[in-house]
Simulated scan of single mutants.
Amino acid sequence: MEVVVVERPREGVALVRINRPEARNALNGEVRQGLAGAFTDLARDPEVRAIVLTGNEEAFAAGADIKAMAEAGAVEMMLREAHRLWAPIAACPKPVIAAVNGYALGGGCELAMHADIIIAGEGAQFGQPEIRVGIMPGAGGTQRLTRAVGKFKAMMMLLTGKPISAREADAMGLVSSVVPDGEVLETALTLAETIAGMPPLAARQIKEVVLAGADAPLEAALMLERKAFQLLFDSEDQKEGMRAFIEKRRPAYQGR
């Protein structure tokens, strides 16, 4: 059974599904390898303009596979170089939407935070429970979470290990939208389809500037924004988009 399944449900949209239901989609080495390979391939595919990442109705991903690390030592963990398997997701130039049902805990919460937009079901739970098994987040949980919700909310989650509901996550800014559990995937796919219809070069530049600017001084970030804005005026999509607006017709973006 494939632990990571890639589908093409709509034009311009790829769906990446974690498929380990017997383990609540826990992120073992095989899953991480599969995700890294999928995102590497999709990043290079010109037909894909937006990506939806999901699990199943019970769990997005319930964390790392504890059995695979319980007896590991520091050197062994270092030599596994797990961070290299996260890199293709973090560096994906295309918009990524996480469709979250059920548990998004530990590595699952970190995985969701690699996305650009998070659509959560009303029954979803988010958390970083690593402290409860004697460790701490190791794939961005202390850093992405703090940037998303602020120090005080992040510390509450990190130091207690307690999960929060989708509504709590929405209130603190951790998710983009909360919808009924049965509508999560459809909402994410519809949103991805909308984004896929936008000019892909502009979408790529928006994502790049938002992520790069987040850790830069304001003046440097504004300079990045100006340069990207100016660069897009050399694209065919910019000409097409503005001409279509003037001519009151629907644009046809080609990603050039």
Rank of each mutant, 00 (worst) to 15 (best):
G121A: 12
M1Q: 04
L42E: 10
V184N: 02
K162V: 14
P180W: 02
G255S: 07
V209L: 06
S176W: 10
G197M: 13
I51C: 08
L201K: 14
P137F: 01
E47A: 09
M223W: 08
A139P: 04
T187D: 12
L145N: 01
Q230R: 14
A26K: 15
G134M: 06
A212K: 02
A61E: 07
L231H: 03
A104S: 10
V31A: 08
A43H: 11
I97A: 14
T54K: 11
C92S: 10
E247C: 07
I66W: 03
G150N: 08
C92F: 02
T40K: 06
G29R: 11
A220N: 09
L159A: 14
E240S: 06
R250V: 15
E208Q: 15
E240I: 15
R147Y: 05
G123H: 09
A43T: 14
L111N: 08
G12M: 12
A252M: 11
R32K: 08
A220H: 05
G182N: 13
L231S: 13
G108K: 00
P180V: 03
A43S: 15
M136N: 00
A203D: 02
A221D: 06
A87K: 11
P199V: 09
N19C: 03
G127L: 11
I117F: 13
A36H: 09
A221G: 15
E247P: 05
N25V: 13
E183M: 10
P199A: 08
L232V: 07
G121E: 14
A64E: 10
L231F: 00
F60Y: 07
Q230D: 14
F229A: 08
L145F: 01
A120E: 14
R167W: 11
P199Y: 01
A72I: 11
V5G: 03
L191A: 04
P180H: 00
K239M: 08
G73H: 04
K67G: 11
D65V: 13
D181A: 11
V133S: 01
V5P: 00
P129A: 02
A74D: 14
K162F: 06
R10N: 09
L232F: 07
R84P: 02
A91Q: 14
V48P: 10
G134N: 04
